[in-house]
Simulated assay, not measured.
Amino acid sequence: MWSRVFSQGKIWVPLGLFLSLLMTLIVPSFIGEYLDGTSDDIFSVILPGLFTLFCYLLLLMGLFRRFGVDRDKVWTRFGKLFNRQIRFENVDRIDTGVGRFKVYGGDTKINIDYNRFDYTLVYIRLLEELQYRRIKVKNLDIDDPEWEGTAQAFRNSLARHAYQNHQTFYDAHPEELDRLQALIQPPKSYVNRAGSTE
Rank of each mutant, 00 (worst) to 15 (best):
I94M: 14
R155E: 04
D118E: 07
V91T: 08
S20C: 09
P187S: 11
G62H: 06
I26A: 11
L22Y: 13
K136T: 06
K109F: 00
L17K: 00
P14L: 07
N115G: 14
D72C: 07
R66P: 05
D36M: 13
T38S: 15
L22Q: 11
V98G: 14
L59G: 07
V103C: 08
G79H: 00
D171T: 13
L130I: 08
L158H: 09
F169C: 03
A172T: 12
A153L: 15
L47H: 07
L121A: 12
D144I: 04
D171K: 12
I94W: 01
I86V: 14
L126Y: 07
Y132S: 06
V45S: 03
E33H: 15
N165L: 06
Y104R: 06
I184M: 06
I46Q: 01
V191T: 12
R65M: 13
L81S: 11
F64D: 03
V91Y: 02
Q8L: 14
E175F: 09
Q167T: 02
F117H: 03
R87S: 13
D36L: 15
V137G: 01
E146S: 12
E33A: 15
N139Q: 12
D171M: 13
L183F: 06
E176N: 11
P174V: 10
F18D: 02
P28F: 08
F51V: 10
L19P: 04
L21V: 15
S39E: 08
R65F: 13
I31N: 01
G99E: 08
S39C: 09
R134G: 04
K73P: 00
G9M: 07
V103I: 10
E198N: 11
F101S: 01
I46H: 02
F88I: 01
S39W: 07
E129I: 14
L59K: 06
V69C: 05
S189P: 03
F78N: 02
A194Q: 09
D144R: 02
R133S: 06
G97I: 08
L180R: 01
K80Q: 11
G99L: 01
V69A: 03
G79C: 05
G99P: 02
E89A: 15
A172I: 07
M23T: 11
Q85I: 01
A182F: 15
I184G: 03
V45M: 06
K188I: 07
R84W: 14
E128C: 04
V74E: 03
G49H: 05
Q167F: 09
L35N: 14
Y123Q: 04
G195N: 00
R100A: 10
R160P: 01
Q164W: 01
V13Y: 05
Y104W: 10
L140N: 02
R65H: 13
R66C: 05
F43E: 02
H166I: 00
L35Y: 13
V103A: 03
F78M: 07
E129F: 11
T168L: 10
I184C: 03
K10R: 12
P186S: 05
L58I: 09
F78Q: 04
G62S: 08
Y56W: 08
R65Y: 12
R100S: 14
L126N: 03
D41P: 09
V27G: 09
Y56G: 05
L25T: 14
G32H: 15
Q8G: 14
I11R: 13
E146A: 14
G195C: 04
T120R: 06
L121Y: 10
D178R: 15
I142K: 02
D72L: 10
A172V: 09
T76M: 11
R65G: 00
V122I: 04
K10A: 12
N156T: 11
T150K: 13
F51I: 12
E129A: 15
